Amino acid sequence: MSDLSEAPKIERAPNRTSPVNLLAGISVRVSVEVGSTMMTIAELATLEAGNVVALDRKVGEPLDICANGSLVARGEIVSVDGRYGIRITELVSAEGRG
């Protein structure tokens, strides 16, 4: 999904007034972090097509799923109708989001 307009619509109960339903229509940016690395600007400037940048994750490790930059879950890559998707394998508690 390149933009939120492609996101599937979630059906809500019409007459419920729980805090979650009050916020359910608000869009948030969801991103997935495969891994990261630190490099200098000089190293970044020398990158060319075909170079490989090693990340801090091992193959098979869960990916971080963030909503508006905050960690909310972990998951794994799956294929959905020829597109990448993420299967959520763990929800992160508020204490674990630090």
Rank of each mutant, 00 (worst) to 15 (best):
G25W: 01
L71G: 02
D56S: 15
V32L: 03
E33H: 06
K58P: 01
L63W: 15
L55K: 15
V32K: 01
R16S: 07
V53F: 00
L23S: 01
M39V: 05
R29F: 02
E33F: 07
R16H: 06
D64T: 12
P62M: 10
L63C: 13
E11F: 13
G60D: 10
R74V: 02
E48M: 05
P19W: 08
V34P: 03
E6F: 14
P62C: 04
V30N: 12
A13F: 05
E6Y: 14
T17S: 05
A73V: 01
L23C: 10
P62I: 02
E61D: 07
E11G: 06
S36A: 09
S36P: 04
A73C: 01
E48I: 00
P14D: 00
E61N: 11
E48S: 02
S31R: 01
P14Y: 04
N68T: 04
G60R: 10
V59I: 09
R12F: 00
A49G: 10
P14W: 04
G35T: 10
L22Q: 02
P14S: 03
A7F: 00
S27I: 09
S36G: 08
P62T: 03
L71F: 00
A67S: 06
A7R: 00
A49C: 03
T46P: 05
V34T: 14
V28A: 04
R12Q: 14
S36D: 02
V32F: 03
E48C: 03
A45I: 00
R29G: 10
E43G: 06
L4R: 08
D64G: 07
K58D: 11
